[in-house]
Design a protein around this nucleic acid. Sequence first.
DNA 1: CTCCCGCTAGAACGAACGCTCTATCCAGTG
DNA 2: CACTGGATAGAGCGTTCGTTCTAGCGGGAG
Lengths: 207, 207
Amino acid sequence: MKTAEQDPTKDAERPVGTRERIVRAASLLMQRQGYDGTGIKQISTEAGATLGSVYHFFPGGKQQLAVAAIGHGEREFADELRLTLDGAADPAQAMIDCAHRLAEGLRESDWIEGCPVTSTALGTAGRAPDIQEAAAAAFANWRDLVYARLRRAEIADDDARDLAHTVISTLEGAELAAQVSRSERPLLTAGRHLAQLIDLYGPTTDS
Amino acid sequence: MKTAEQDPTKDAERPVGTRERIVRAASLLMQRQGYDGTGIKQISTEAGATLGSVYHFFPGGKQQLAVAAIGHGEREFADELRLTLDGAADPAQAMIDCAHRLAEGLRESDWIEGCPVTSTALGTAGRAPDIQEAAAAAFANWRDLVYARLRRAEIADDDARDLAHTVISTLEGAELAAQVSRSERPLLTAGRHLAQLIDLYGPTTDS
DNA sequence: CTCCCGCTAGAACGAACGCTCTATCCAGTG
DNA sequence: CACTGGATAGAGCGTTCGTTCTAGCGGGAG
């Protein structure tokens, strides 16, 4: 009742509800300019909506909108991450592929669209617990995807859990370094090193 | 003429010039709240200075102040990084020590004082080239410190360069993940993994 | 002494902020 | 038909923003 109804065909672009357009615009703008750097009026303008609509769908104001935007960014990246993890022959190769994808997206946006969660979550550190929780949940979800992939490759449970932490941390940090230095190198290097690290824990363990 | 003159004794706390106080306040506040989340009036209040003083020392306004703040944060962390790198027996152990130190600082600040450069640089991605350059320079300096330490441990030049990239990326990302999830685990895990990774390239190379 | 200048001090400006409020529109229901 | 309630629309609230500007301070130089 809330969304579909008309056509669950592939991914129709056109009939996107107002609420969804607002969330998308918020996610994109906050990804680029951060939480404080993005105004609600700018979001409504970019979304083709009006201020009244924004506050109708998000009576909780900017904070609630930011939580929804983080959730949207989380889902977007999770889909791509899942695809990349499943598309590779082994987790090590998946890391390299993942780094490549991130580098590509970053370069194509002229180095302004980094992690959609990071820029929104930073700067609201102590102020907005809701936003912090949403960001933490996003990281945890991504980590779980990596963990599951590592487990499927016969990596021990404890090792897989630890590796998943480092994989997300490193990819996140490398994307940040790449964005700041406007270079793909941090990401590509990180991808190779993560692959090496994972191979250390591969099924060839015999100890 | 600009600073010292009176006493180059250790690190006297009291007679700190107005300009220095402004830079310190700006660095701390932007570290916590980001660039857009920090107002110049708040900085001047926190520094015990007035608006006039801020614009006297930084006629370039908020952007120039942010560049100086990033430089200050860069120097602060570089000092600590140098100390940690030199204090460890080998680079691998240094990574573990470094992660511990970062985790400690983050926990003690109740998870609000992350990387002083990241929060300032993010959100000004496309808008302020000066700030971006300062942030990129900070990362490069830190990387050089790690690179030099790796070289001293007889690691091949190309390997050391690549490893230095990943070390900074991973520490940066792990600090971010730790801050968001309010847990030391991402940092501690990253430290151990970085140590393992470095050991792969240790002086035991025979190829 | 007088002059000067680096520095301090804060009032004031226009613009933009998050948010509230009322008014209007329109499909669905009796 | 009238009525209703979700959705749209935007003027306007008080506040804060970054910046500008003028006035005053205090100590060394002539």
